[in-house]
Design a protein around this nucleic acid. Structure first.
Lengths: 205, 205
DNA sequence: GGTGAATTCTATAGATCTATAGAATTATTG
DNA sequence: CAATAATTCTATAGATCTATAGAATTCACC
């Protein structure tokens, strides 16, 4: 507990601790990872970690929040912007997939391990996740209204499917740093909009 | 170690043990679940579990194998059948999603926890998973050849995307027994083939 | 350089958890 | 029913792991 709340070093080290926890949780899972693992990754001793976290569970909570927070913020600004539907969709996929790169493993930890948090903490995260999904649903609804997306679309289904697919890519992205992100983003967006079916050209075969 | 290898009860109880392990691993994760949890779910004492499993890790291996085995078999028979592309695709999605219902949580455990297995055991599972993905790629390639799917499709990407999306639904299916599976299957197939974009009709607006 | 605050360390209590050994119980078979 | 085999139980060794207390060290500022 630092006396000076404007203390710089404490916050910096705390961030390092959260990142270390994210890396270790992503690799070994919440229960598979020990506080010793996290401390060693950070370069301190096991007991010292409790200077930055109240408990191991607290560490998981911080990682999850860190993982999802600006991810949802980005969705909010995408949704609020006045781009056309197709741009919003692509921005969403871009934001989702690149989160896995930029934020290292914290978003993955949020997705895979948040269920180990107590009900109370999970509720906060759940609201964030629901907000994300609802905003994406709304984007699809706008797409319907603007005539770009077919009227028959179940927008709730659509949002779930897109989120699920992006999370699936997340696993691959985290494990394979070679993967061309931009290429994947383009292909995903194209799939969501157009599907894989051959377009019938005007000329008959 | 039963003397009579044709012993019936032993195999039956072993199956029960695997199912219990699947349920508990799915809920708490490999490290989060204790052998006591599994034994209690099965209605025996902790130590007795070792009559059926060599180790906790062995239990995880069995659950993973149980989870993926007939799932891959089904893909093999889908791939070998002579249905047209669209039927194969729908059969694939159906098989994938309904696996989550029928096999309870074992496929989910395979997806989420197999990385905690030692390299050797994981290699076997990896081959099964690769076989699945390659067969799905081949289905897409056939779709291209038959002209149903556009020539520009990256079939490797397509297979990954479909698998990722189905796994995403898997989480939802396991947690929400209410979800209409057939409806979800139809919408997924439709999305993969046609995307969400409004088809331009021949009449101009 | 000295002083108090901030940070990190060492050591450990107490609570797990896995796996094993051997006893007790239940089932099977002549 | 007796005897043998199969299954389950009890008890525990040994190895974690989390969280805390208090000592040691480093840092910031005068």
């Amino acid at each position: 507990m630092p006396a000076n709340p404007h203390n710089n070093r404490y916050e910096q080290q705390r961030q390092r601790a959260i990142r270390s926890a994210a890396t270790v949780f992503a690799e070994k899972g919440f229960y598979g990872a020990s506080t010793k693992d996290i401390a060693e990754h950070m370069g301190i001793k096991q007991g010292s970690l409790y200077y930055y976290f109240k408990s191991k569970e607290d560490a998981l909570g911080e990682v999850c929040r860190y993982g999802i927070e600006d991810y949802v913020d980005r969705m909010t600004s995408i949704a609020a912007s006045d781009q056309p539907f197709e741009s919003k969709l692509m921005a969403t996929v871009t934001s989702h997939l690149s989160s896995y790169r930029e934020k290292n493993e914290a978003l993955k930890v949020h997705n895979d391990e948040r269920l180990y948090l107590p009900e109370e903490k999970r509720a906060t995260l759940k609201e964030l996740g629901s907000s994300y999904r609802q905003q994406l649903e709304r984007i699809f609804e706008e797409g319907v209204e603007s005539g770009v997306v077919r009227k028959s679309l179940d927008c709730h289904f659509a949002a779930q499917a897109v989120i699920g697919m992006c999370n699936g890519w997340g696993d691959i992205i985290v494990r394979d740093p070679q993967l061309d992100l931009f290429d994947t983003i383009q292909k995903c967006t194209d799939m969501i909009l157009n599907g894989f079916r051959e377009r019938r050209t005007t000329e008959r075969q």
